[in-house]
């Protein structure tokens, strides 16, 4: 019965939210990051997506993550509510992972597929990545919405499909910069980069920053 832990609690895992529209490649990105960090970080995943035994089998067969390190959260057909307005079930899932397989360095919280307005509460995650894909149309960055404009990292995914769907990456890059100011945007093709190197590097950087800001402390006994 953990109270809502303060975000700056020393030594707890960095929580990174991964949101974005349906089909933009959130689950594929989670799988890629699991591959990237397999031998490097103690990892847990909370998914708000519809999560089947097949999904678990896929991750296990791909050798990317032990199903014990994954928790699924039911969202009652309200995926945005579960990550933004009423985050208790997700916080419970994070706590349960820490109890079952902790301590953890990094917890990835995958949102259910939603639209461009869905973002994570700062009460749930420390950083959030918003994933859109070129097949959704190169106008998506221009449309904005809180995910595109305010996420700590915007990932424009499936760049390998750009020629096929007639998406202009230069336009997407320009619109993303216009919308996001100094916030970073990365282009990604997991087909060509199965460990999502650039995104993994960004997380490593955030993780180092998180560790420096919240060093692991040892409880001090009576002097």
């Amino acid at each position: 019965m953990d109270p809502h832990p303060p975000l700056a609690r020393a030594g707890r895992a960095l929580r990174v939210g991964i949101g974005g529209p349906v089909g933009s490649g959130k689950t594929a990105l989670v799988a890629a990051l699991c591959r990237a960090f397999a031998d490097e970080l103690r990892l847990g995943v909370v998914t708000n997506d519809i999560y089947t035994t097949e999904d678990a089998d896929f991750l296990r067969r791909a050798g990317v993550l032990d199903p014990a390190r994954i928790r699924a959260v039911e969202t009652g057909c309200c995926p945005h509510t579960a990550i933004r307005d009423d985050i208790g079930a997700n916080l419970d899932a994070v706590d349960e992972l820490a109890e079952a397989v902790g301590p953890l360095d990094l917890v990835l919280v995958e949102s259910g597929g939603d639209n461009l307005t869905a973002t994570f509460s700062r009460g749930l995650v420390d950083r959030q990545i918003f994933v859109v894909d070129v097949a959704g149309g190169d106008k998506v960055p221009r449309k904005g919405g809180p995910g595109v404009t305010a996420a700590d990292l915007l990932v424009i995914n499936k760049t390998d499909l750009a020629p096929m769907v007639g998406a202009d990456l230069a336009v997407m890059d320009r619109d993303a910069r216009a919308r996001r100011g100094d916030l970073p945007t990365l282009f990604l093709s997991i087909v060509g980069d199965p460990t999502a190197t650039s995104v993994a590097d960004w997380i490593r950087h955030e993780l180092a920053h998180h560790a420096a800001a919240h060093p692991l402390t040892v409880p001090v006994g009576p002097a």
Partner: peptide, 10 residues
């Protein structure tokens, strides 16, 4: 809308 998880229970 009180954040106690009601949305996820039927």
């Amino acid at each position: 809308r009180f954040p106690a998880g009601a949305h996820a229970h039927s």
